[in-house]
Amino acid sequence: MQMRMEALRVFAVGILVGWALGAVGKEVTGLPSCHFPAIFNFGDSNSDTGGMSAAFYPMVWPFGETFFHEAVGRASDGRLMVDFIAEHLKLPYLSAYLDSIGSSFRHGRNFGVNFRHGANFATGGATILRPNKTVFESGVSPFYLDIQIAHFDQFKARTTSLYNHAKSAFQRRKLPRPEDFSKALYVLDIGQNDISAGLSKKEEERQAYIPELVNKLSAAVQHLYEQGARAFWIHNTGPFGCMPVSILYAPNPQGTLDRCGCLKYSNGVAMEFNKQLKEAVVKLRADLPEAALTYVDIYAAKYALISDAKKQGFVEPPEKCCGKRVNGVDVQCGQKANVNGTEVYAASCENPSSYISWDGVHYTEAANHWFAKRIIMGLVSDNSIPIAQACHKAHHV
């Protein structure tokens, strides 16, 4: 029954999207624009703009090929949703907190690190809870949510001190203004890797595991609120069971797939997390009276595209653009491998914009753009407020 209701809800989102496409960027709520001076982002590879690449291993070609024309630390062929959010709010792309050099792509948006309009604390592989394994063992980031929050605290204290002691406007030009921290938009997009790790847990273990995830995320929001944050844009987690990496390598997928070819069990766990997260956001609204909290149903946006891929001009899942499997050997996107004495290179597909999945785990720029247009308008937000008005508290939640 839960899956059926979810399908109906996603179908309704698809209908809404159809008539609302022309409204992108309009103040459909009648509320004034917030004019956010900065964005502070916390998350995993879905919104990492170079943190993990700077800290451990550089991203390689063909990552970044579509828009940046070079690898710039994003797990995609181009822009991520957070990039489109920044564009819509007329802000520069976010520099990664861990990157001391910064992006140098040839589009005039970022040349070197600039934190004047925010910072990105997200890293690929990041989790809400502290990971049990290291990045070298499993690709999991050591920069889990508590560490990202600690980085923000350090960033705020240090930049405020530098700004206040600077002797000229030139010295302050790449530093956030202290007063902007309370006016900024705080985006949280994390939980996918925790859900992936929780799929192997028994039912009774998950009953305690998911509330732990939600409580930890709520605690992060409360901490940021205590630090002066007021406008929060909180993403739930996407349909993990629709990712090629989940479907193609499931041990016995027959009989476990829904009408879109997604793994029911995996998506069911994601939906339970999302349900509890939404309840937590409602509670936070009561606990944090000065905060404007928007719960964004990323799951609905992603599932809507996946379920209607062909009509939207995309190759139907679970196809991925970059990466291949040769004689049982997985060759990751942009990597080389020796398969039966032959060197195999995993290049990208000819037309990434026709694919939803970039590398089996992450999304293409085209898919990210499709999602971003929906979330920016507030079509999948519980209070229906577009992102440009997200500093306003809704009275009709």
Results as ranks from 00 to 15, higher is better:
224 L>T: 13
223 H>C: 04
195 I>K: 00
211 P>C: 10
191 G>K: 06
178 P>V: 09
203 E>V: 01
206 R>V: 00
200 S>L: 01
224 L>I: 13
239 P>E: 02
237 T>F: 03
191 G>H: 07
207 Q>T: 03
221 V>M: 10
210 I>A: 01
234 I>Q: 10
192 Q>F: 04
209 Y>H: 02
230 R>Q: 14
177 R>Q: 15
197 A>R: 07
200 S>P: 03
178 P>C: 14
222 Q>M: 07
237 T>P: 04
235 H>F: 15
239 P>N: 04
208 A>V: 06
198 G>C: 02
224 L>M: 13
226 E>Y: 06
223 H>E: 09
175 L>F: 12
235 H>Y: 15
193 N>V: 02
183 K>E: 14
207 Q>I: 02
197 A>W: 02
225 Y>K: 05
181 F>A: 15
238 G>I: 08
198 G>D: 01
229 A>W: 07
218 S>D: 09
199 L>C: 01
201 K>Y: 02
234 I>Y: 07
201 K>D: 00
196 S>P: 02
175 L>A: 13
195 I>C: 02
229 A>G: 13
180 D>H: 14
183 K>F: 11
225 Y>W: 10
199 L>N: 01
222 Q>W: 10
172 R>A: 11
222 Q>E: 10
193 N>D: 05
223 H>S: 09
239 P>G: 03
194 D>N: 08
197 A>H: 04
212 E>F: 05
194 D>R: 04
201 K>V: 00
186 Y>I: 12
178 P>E: 12
224 L>F: 05
198 G>K: 01
198 G>W: 00
191 G>R: 07
234 I>G: 10
228 G>A: 14
226 E>T: 12
172 R>K: 11
220 A>P: 09
220 A>N: 05
183 K>H: 14
233 W>Q: 11
227 Q>Y: 06
182 S>P: 10
228 G>E: 13
236 N>I: 10
200 S>D: 01
172 R>M: 12
226 E>S: 15
191 G>W: 05
172 R>C: 09
216 K>M: 09
194 D>K: 04
238 G>V: 06
185 L>M: 08
201 K>N: 02
233 W>L: 11
177 R>V: 13
237 T>G: 06
211 P>G: 08
206 R>G: 00
183 K>N: 15
201 K>L: 04
172 R>S: 11
188 L>N: 08
214 V>R: 09
218 S>A: 15
176 P>M: 10
218 S>R: 10
226 E>A: 13
216 K>C: 05
217 L>V: 11
192 Q>K: 08
202 K>I: 03
203 E>I: 00
205 E>C: 02
220 A>F: 06
200 S>Y: 00
236 N>S: 14
177 R>W: 07
182 S>G: 14
235 H>Q: 11
210 I>E: 00
199 L>I: 01
228 G>L: 15
214 V>T: 14
172 R>P: 08
191 G>Y: 05
217 L>N: 09
213 L>A: 04
203 E>F: 00
185 L>T: 07
175 L>S: 10
199 L>E: 00
181 F>H: 14
192 Q>Y: 04
188 L>I: 06
216 K>A: 12
212 E>N: 12
189 D>V: 07
196 S>A: 12
187 V>Y: 03
